[in-house]
Design a protein around this nucleic acid. Sequence first.
DNA 1: ATGTAC
Length: 470
Amino acid sequence: MEVVEEDPYRFRIARRARMRVPGVVFASRDLLSHAEKALEQVVNVAALPGIVGASYAMPDVHWGYGFPIGGVAATDVADGGVVSPGGVGFDISCGVRLLAADCDRTAIGPALPAIMDGLGQDTPRGAVTGAVWHLGSDRLLERVLAGGSRYAVEEGHGEDGDLRRCEDDGAVADADTGQVGARARERGLGQVGSLGSGNHFLEVQEVAEVYDEPVAAAFGLALGQVCVMIHCGSRGLGHQICSDHVRAMDRAMRRYGIEVPDRQLACAPVDSPEGRAYLGAMAAAANYARANRQLLGELSRRVFRREAGVRLTLVYDVSHNLAKIEEHEVDATPRTLCVHRKGATRALPPGHPDLPADLRGVGQPVLIPGTMGTCSYVLTGVPRGEAFHSTCHGAGREKSRHQAARGVSGRELRSRLEARGIAVRASSWRGLAEETPEAYKDVSAVVEASEGAGLCRRVVRLVPLGVVKG
DNA sequence: ATGTAC
């Protein structure tokens, strides 16, 4: 495959064969050398009906189901543009929530072990079912699917200021709960307020470096400040919705005469019964994920208040697996696009109307979870951001789970982390070993390339004090 | 990521 360096941190794959648009990869040379296999998927995505601009890849791109993880693709709704569940991923609206404590590391120090014990005991996690909120009935699940974080806050699981610091004010509009199947509902009923497993985590962190003090201050962040970062998604419910709609679209494609280079790119026109059905179900799953993070945030607040008398304020909540109908200019013409971000984070620039008033001057907080035991970042959107205002989402896996677990035992990894002063509360040794930092790309290199490519700007770097793992 | 296969 011919990949041409256009600028430092920007590479182009020229159009050929079935590609409707070129591929654009934002990466350093080093990161690009790890992404070769995923670039085949970038090329495949470029063949989607209605795709505009380019098939984009972020610096943390890696192999995924059909679409690469770290991919961004937008289709023109009025020009036969399609929506594809593979362009969102199985974990619909997987994302990150960051809360800031009203104290710094030195003040909280003595209470940290009790806080970690409290979080470790109270956070439902791992592959098994268990939740903070026992819905008990399909009627209440229906409200979660329609109302997301907003419904959780209305029911007392949150504070007044929370919703304006959530993407979409805490709930995606246009959820069509009628498109959420019985199996998805069954799986979702007992998991609202649970972390899950894999790379999902809850971390207590400290702001270790501030790159832009005025923007950090607008976000409510300062050097030394204690934070809580929560990375999780829509659990079994989102997974089931993705499976159900991939199957429906696989059947529908022939009827619409759509041909794609990989069956995993199953899709349907946005403006079709199947396209609308998926988008409605996807929005419901997105609301479930938002409610999930809202409840885990509340759980953290309770533990911090109980163990240390510390208050937590929401900085932001943003998803990195979602398709959204957005207005963008294409060739100087405003168009309505379906923007797929899979392992890519929306990064609104300063002045964007979708930002809350108190952030309008500085841009959207972009939350980047690092690998366990390394660091995480808060970035912000920039004017003229490319790829429809998108940037990276994290470190990006490099080694398989199996490879990772072969290299280190869970017990050994925990002692390594604890020796560095990081408290570990894991639910499975095997799960911990699979998430060893060596299995991932360097999140700092990913963030550096994203900033270098002009997709975002660094605001602060966070380091872990304690980690709760599924 | 995921009741790690239907």
